[in-house]
Design a protein around this nucleic acid. Structure first.
Lengths: 229, 229
DNA sequence: GCCCCATATGACGGAACTGCGACAGTGATA
DNA sequence: TATCACTGTCGCAGTTCCGTCATATGGGGC
């Protein structure tokens, strides 16, 4: 369900297979292609959580794939790890310049790549690394898609779940309604800002227990924030 | 809202677009232009919090833009980061001489530039980098939208919050009523100057504690200033 | 001490904002 | 088909907040 989705762009078939096997073993969902254009199609079809991109591929070059991923709003924020040959210092510079988040030089051990992937995911979105997030007396398990408070399991709808997850990933921080719309509903959603209020109310109701303080703070004229108890 | 506003002056369109995405992703508000004269217009229209300035642009040169920004009182204090070619050591020297705050040599990674921007903002206006600002016995957390004094939480309304934040960013300095109107209410607000007095009173009341000195100083026929205890 | 002028204070009507209940539309399920 | 859970929107009510005014207070020059 919430296994992190990787897109692997690699034209060395043996290496690609090896990595696919290793990553799937670690609980990732992997999609592989050797072709740059196909990579872009895959990425726009079903946005991956992270892209592993070989710099030297046939068709559209790595650098071009990287640039186009960044240009498309839907994939602009997807982290990219690039694979480069050791000598190609120049590529590395251009890679980072184009917006790659990290790079690994060939030859590398699959373990090293696994570690990098895990590190980048943890930095970008902790929940994707498969870790449960805790905030005060609440615990959210992104893998099982479950939320509990004080050991009690909460019944919670899809939107409220995403909303709560986002709040728990950034506790204490105040978000405006439009920021929440971008983060939870997706950028460019054309939804009334007041609708956020309604879901906040639904979320409050869903996480309420007997004699428990409401952990969601309303900041007048600014937005909402989660205050862990 | 409180997203730092950047003005990016860059005539390499691909690079400009890339940076725009990255910075917007990080929560900045970005305005882009390739033209030096237009940059000056933008800057005077809506003062940015920081300017990223390519040294080699068409029209009015980077150095000239920098100099004029410094000359105009409204933008004299805005920090400037310049982008230079690696070889152009000469430019770097002249840039710093002209008043740039930092420079980044091409080629660079977006991450590096992000780090520089964040560092400069932290130095110049900590609240913009999301850091808590302290003044005397008061502490303001712009991310959580909270103010405390001597460890005690203060209850404070939206306008008083903005007013206090502005004062805490510029302690000990005296501001006239019209300066405060520009800074806190926004330029072009058509509000009676006397109204400032009222909000000053409300702010004083909001931050008052038992047996604590009033940290806001009234400067007769000049304005108000915050005197940290 | 007295007067003038800038500031402080209290009050008030209206605007802005949030919480709440309700409702229709949608898609999934049985 | 009927049911159910979920979503987005609306209008209303309660509350807070805002800008303005009239009036009181106080400091400084004479």
């Amino acid at each position: 369900m919430s296994a992190p989705k990787l897109l692997l762009v690699e034209d060395d078939l043996a290496l690609a297979e090896l990595l696919e096997y290793r990553f799937e073993n670690e609980g990732y969902e992997v999609r592989v292609t050797a072709d740059g254009d196909e990579a872009l199609v895959f990425a726009s079809e079903d946005a991956p959580d992270l892209v592993i991109l070989d710099w030297m591929i046939e068709g559209t070059s790595g650098i071009e794939v990287c640039r186009r991923l960044r240009r498309d709003k839907a994939t602009a924020h997807v982290p990219i790890i690039m694979l480069t040959a050791r000598e190609a210092e120049d590529d590395r510079v251009r890679g980072l310049e184009t917006g790659a988040d990290d790079y690994v030089t060939k030859p590398f051990s699959p373990r090293e790549l696994l570690a990098r992937v895990s590190a980048v995911l943890r930095r970008v979105r902790p929940a994707l690394a498969g870790e449960t997030i805790e905030a005060g007396d609440m615990k959210l398990d992104p893998v099982a898609h479950r939320v509990e408070r004080r050991g009690r399991q909460l019944q919670i709808g899809p939107t409220e779940y995403r909303l709560l997850k986002f709040f728990m990933e950034h506790p204490r921080r105040v978000f405006s309604r439009s920021q929440l719309l971008d983060a939870v509903w997706g950028t460019g959603s054309e939804i009334e800002e007041r609708t956020v209020d309604v879901h906040i109310r639904r979320l409050r109701k869903a996480i309420a227990l007997d004699n428990s303080r409401d952990p969601i703070r309303t900041v007048r004229s600014a937005g909402y924030a989660l205050e862990p108890v």
